[in-house]
């Protein structure tokens, strides 16, 4: 599956994830599924509500964040298609913790941030049987 992102949105994700370093940051992806691709139309940064001392390797949002963004997406004819978060000083590969909390049919963009600078950015989807993530093609357009 192709996950299509504009270079502007990609730059904004990277800037946000550098901004939350050394802690993890993240947010929701709003977009449009279209057969074998998903177009990302908008990113919405959400505060990390995990315990402060754990935020260097954990990220969480509240159920109220989900309700608000899902209602907004539905009202605007968009879909809540996924979420993005950072891995400070770690590869952009889903952790076991990521998999335990993941949903199928959802796009996961992970950005590696090394010493405050965004590096590798990769995109993943969970298999329907929840057994593992598969990497997807990230397509960046002007």
């Amino acid at each position: 599956m192709q996950i299509i992102l504009t270079s502007d949105l990609q730059a904004r994700i990277k800037a946000q994830m550098e901004g939350t370093y050394p802690n993890e940051g993240g947010g929701f992806l709003l977009g449009t599924p279209n057969g074998d691709s998903v177009q990302i139309n908008e990113i919405i940064q959400i505060d990390n509500v995990f315990e402060a001392e754990e935020q260097y390797h954990r990220y969480a949002m509240t159920p109220q964040d989900w309700m608000r963004l899902e209602d907004e997406a539905d009202a605007r004819g968009l879909s809540l298609v996924g979420y993005y978060h950072s891995h400070p000083n770690a590869r952009a590969i889903p952790s076991v913790y990521d998999r335990d909390h993941a949903l199928p049919n959802f796009v996961y963009i992970i950005t590696q941030v090394n010493e405050g600078k965004a590096a590798e950015q990769r995109v993943w989807r969970l298999q329907n049987d929840r057994s593992q993530f598969d990497e997807q093609e990230l397509v960046v357009r002007e």
Partner: peptide, 9 residues
């Protein structure tokens, strides 16, 4: 309403 917990690490 069913709401997934969104978390990562």
């Amino acid at each position: 309403r069913i709401i997934p917990s969104i978390a990562g690490g």
